[in-house]
Simulated assay, not measured.
Amino acid sequence: MIIEKATLDVIPGQAAEFERAFAEAQTIIAAMPGYREHQLHRCIEQPDRYVLLVWWNRLEDHTEGFRQSAEYQRWRALLHKFYDPFPVVEHYRQVSGVLSGAQV
């Protein structure tokens, strides 16, 4: 499993419209093969910045399956107009677990 992390800087004043568009767009990504789950978080210190986390079974599920699909074109039409600059997208693989409630 991998995690896609995208830092999304939304044009100032367009956060509410972006969130409405994302509510529609998230159904697109959720229907893709290899998709597991996603989370969208809004920054407290910089309210026009978001972080999108998407869990995929394999890197190729995102880079080939989603990004080369017809559905990606709809995703792009809904969301890409809000970004300035264009998002940096990175992929991560887990190397350690979480100690829930434990002190190290």
Rank of each mutant, 00 (worst) to 15 (best):
E64P: 00
Y83Q: 07
G34T: 08
Y72E: 06
D9A: 06
Y35W: 14
G13N: 12
I11C: 07
Q46Y: 10
D61M: 07
A70G: 08
V51I: 15
S96P: 00
P47V: 10
P85W: 07
E4C: 04
W56H: 08
E37H: 13
L40K: 03
E71H: 09
L52E: 10
F82M: 04
V98D: 05
S69N: 13
W75I: 02
I44Y: 15
I2N: 09
P12W: 09
R76V: 00
D84G: 06
F18W: 01
V104M: 04
A30I: 02
N57F: 04
A30F: 05
R93G: 15
N57Q: 15
Y35H: 14
Q39N: 14
F82L: 04
T63D: 06
R20G: 00
I29M: 14
E24P: 00
V88M: 12
E64L: 05
E90A: 08
F18G: 00
I3Y: 15
I11V: 13
M32N: 04
Q14D: 05
D48L: 00
V54I: 15
R42P: 07
E19F: 01
T7C: 10
H62E: 07
G65N: 05
L78Q: 08
K5G: 05
V10C: 08
Q73N: 11
W75C: 00
K5L: 11
